[in-house]
Design a protein around this nucleic acid. Sequence first.
DNA 1: TCTGGATAGGTCCGTATTGACATATCCAAG
DNA 2: CTTGGATATGTCAATACGGACCTATCCAGA
Lengths: 185, 185
Amino acid sequence: MALRYALLGLLTERPASGYDLAKAFEGDLGRYAWQAGHNRIYPELARLVDEGLIERAEEGARGRRVHTITAAGFAELRAWLLQPLVSGAVRNEGVLRLFLLSALDPDDARKLLHEIVTHAEQELARLKDTVSGETPVSPEGRLDFGWLAAGYGLRQYEASRDWAVWALGEFDKAERRQAGRHPAA
Amino acid sequence: MALRYALLGLLTERPASGYDLAKAFEGDLGRYAWQAGHNRIYPELARLVDEGLIERAEEGARGRRVHTITAAGFAELRAWLLQPLVSGAVRNEGVLRLFLLSALDPDDARKLLHEIVTHAEQELARLKDTVSGETPVSPEGRLDFGWLAAGYGLRQYEASRDWAVWALGEFDKAERRQAGRHPAA
DNA sequence: TCTGGATAGGTCCGTATTGACATATCCAAG
DNA sequence: CTTGGATATGTCAATACGGACCTATCCAGA
């Protein structure tokens, strides 16, 4: 159900072809929020057309077909966005790995935590550029999806990094406690 | 593919029945990392047994069958956890809504952002209790999954709240810029 | 004793999703 | 003028998943 809203949302920014939309999912949208390939997008676009939530223009060059959101489509999107906050589907392989970290022995776990910190720092550098560099408004004066997403990603990675640093400290503490309980032979 | 690792990971903490595992997904694990109902869990456990990654004990009361991770299962889990960081499947309806926020007109968007801030504050209060209250180590001296997860959730919600506050500010700025461009009639 | 809630296991069906395959056009660089 | 890469759209089969449904046991409290 979420894919259709992602598509409707993207189409409020500008009319787009399935190909354009597939590319949009390759950015921060796909990294933090929802993923979809063209194979999933084309059938869903067809359904949205059937339901009158979007309109499809005639074929352009290379069979390109541009889609535009309708008033009905916008109403549907708005209803979904404003419905009471429920934590719906959540699926994040990266975070799952973080959670399962304590299954490893301390050396492995620490190695992984250090990697997380390094990785987060890299992403932070990239995102800082995006957030500070890009013009924040669309021609009509609306904030840009990608820019908001980058701002979110930035804070997300800061949180991840801080968590990893905290977890490293906790691993150290736990180990010291164990050492105290079983003094060196 | 991730479900199996989640199950293997949970079984490194302690042997568990399918029912126990289903409950584990109702906590912070399911909220931030990966969701699964018992309808997905039972078939996957059967597959893991077939592949020799876990072992299933005889039936106890109410047909309860306790599963234990094998050495092979642990090796599989470890390999997955230590494999180079790739951003795998990500799916988060809540974050998607945040990203699509700028599709709304400023008043609606602001309303939603305020809700996000309120909601985040509530969750923060709950998580602060968990993180500060619970004993951080298992009997064998290993850090508790749930506790690490709560620590992550805490930082996550802080990031969400900060983002929403930042976004609110940006909406204000954008609106003031628009007002400047089209002075009040 | 009986009843409701928690424990415990499971199936089935429709939809969502992914990976692989397939095709055609446009265009710039060699 | 040809070739490779980007643009563009699709299908199909296999798997993953979620919601709904079903059964049965244990036990505490009314």
